[in-house]
Design a binder for these strands. Structure first.
Length: 121
DNA sequence: CTTCTGACGAAAT
DNA sequence: CATTTCGCCAGAA
């Protein structure tokens, strides 16, 4: 698989259970990666067990419609996130607060970009 | 090489 | 609210 995909997976792995991030939030932390690319990577998840793909939703706080999207609603509810099919979850209650400072230092990405990429509540 | 298709997103309508 | 439009860019054909 390509290099950017691997970077997306490594980042998605650090999202804690019970929290979610948007495709755009993930992209903002990876130079050269766009929201669409994050979506593409999720669709090609090599390991659906180790990589918490269900914790990535669209900027509206909803599960992007697609065949099989019902699986995501189930996974989210399993970890305490209230969301019904076709509706949106509460960013206020579940938005990922971002990677630890150590991660930012290592990657060279600044927190500002990430903060700006957050969906407006 | 060109064209088309998205697990995207922001802005306009 | 819901829809449309446009920019985005990796892959597939």
């Amino acid at each position: 698989m390509s290099n950017y995909q691997q970077r997306v997976y490594e980042l998605v792995k650090i999202i804690p259970a019970g929290e979610v991030a948007s495709y755009g939030m993930i992209a903002s932390l990876l130079n050269g990666v766009t929201a669409r690319m994050v979506g593409y990577a999720m669709a090609a998840t090599p390991d659906p067990v180790t990589i918490p793909w269900w914790r990535v939703v669209n900027a509206s706080g909803g599960v992007s419609p697609r065949p099989g999207s019902d699986k995501q609603y189930i996974k989210l509810r399993e970890e305490g996130i209230e969301i019904e099919s076709g509706k949106r979850l509460s960013w206020r209650d579940h938005m990922w607060q971002g990677p630890p400072q150590s991660w930012l230092d290592e990657s060279g990405v600044d927190i500002e970009q990430f903060l700006m990429a957050r969906p407006k509540i």
